[in-house]
Design a protein around this nucleic acid. Structure first.
Length: 279
DNA sequence: AATGAGGTCAACCGCGTATGA
DNA sequence: TTCATACGCGGTTGACCTCAT
């Protein structure tokens, strides 16, 4: 005999949420913040169990969630991460901060599994044995984005970046900024937000920048800490940049990408890396 | 127009883990 | 150390939608 399900209580409502219930839940969380889910039904008067409230919030109502179809870029990320991490949807979702684990899981089960199977069946047997091979194949099939090594680097950087959920949507035409914890479009308006999210001045010193147009990877550094001779100027006017490398058109460092993703996965298990907070 | 098959996705269920008394 | 409780995760379900017949 296991623990009785929390939703077996009499009077607990199940099924789809109504807009009215959503409003009640959102306004409560706006006041009290997410957490202490046990208290939510009591304090709001919602006839839902705490689990249902948490799920509704994390999978649907939470700010920063991107809905709609997955981009080829996201698709490639999911396939690759699934190959590396398995069905660890919550872990995979940390690499796609705008998507929920439920969304990713559903998309995998309904779209990608079939797509991958189809592609793998068309590959050489020894290639089909390695999911990442199929990933590369799918990636190149999906979009020209994946044909360029520069874009593979951008994917690498995407992994480095843990976006803050309140930073808005990403845009491939923008530069991306990563400090192993953040990703923001190069919009001046976003800088106040990223600055507020900084843990320390040191964070700003080690941000990485990938420019999709020029294929440059640069290190963005705090004006105060950069050597003036190395500083460039950024359109935001808030940081300087130090160019460290330019991506050529040779073979992408995919083995490095994979190694890093595996290292990252291990680091997550050890709790060595900071995961993005819900707020 | 009716209907049935298949696809999609929000929500539920049950288990494992973390935490605090 | 043990137990109870709360939370989070992955698997599964079922209502709804779309499309072919």
């Amino acid at each position: 005999m296991g623990r009785p399900p929390c939703c077996d209580k009499v009077g607990i409502k199940k099924g789809p949420w109504t807009p009215e219930e959503d409003i009640v839940l959102v306004s409560y969380i706006q006041q009290h913040g997410p957490g202490n889910w046990r208290a939510v039904p009591t304090n709001t008067g919602l006839l839902r169990c705490s689990k249902s409230c948490r799920l509704r919030w994390t999978n649907y109502l939470r700010p920063g969630i991107k809905r709609g179809s997955f981009t080829p870029h996201e698709e490639g990320m999911i396939i690759h991460l699934q190959a590396l991490l398995g069905n660890k949807w919550a872990a995979i979702a940390t690499y796609l901060p705008q998507r929920t684990d439920n969304d990713i899981k559903n998309y995998w089960n309904t779209h990608l599994k079939k797509k991958l199977k189809k592609i793998q069946s068309g590959l050489e047997p020894q290639m089909a044995a390695h999911p990442t091979t199929a990933y590369h194949h799918l990636a190149s099939e999906n979009s020209s984005v994946y044909a360029s090594s520069a874009e593979n680097i951008s994917r690498l950087l995407q992994g480095w970046m843990r976006s803050s959920p309140n930073l808005g949507n990403s845009n491939h035409d923008d530069k991306y900024y990563g400090d192993f914890g953040k990703m923001i479009p190069n919009h001046e308006s976003q800088w106040q937000k990223i600055e507020q999210g900084m843990r320390s001045d040191h964070d700003l010193e080690r941000m990485l920048v990938f420019d999709h147009q020029t294929s440059n990877i640069t290190v963005a550094c705090d004006k105060s800490s950069c050597d003036s001779s190395q500083k460039g100027s950024d359109s935001s006017g808030l940081i300087g940049t130090e160019k460290v490398c330019k991506i050529d058109n040779g073979n992408p460092p995919l083995s490095f990408l994979e190694k890093w993703l595996l290292d990252e996965s291990a680091a997550q298990v050890e709790g060595a890396m900071e995961l993005p907070p819900i707020f």
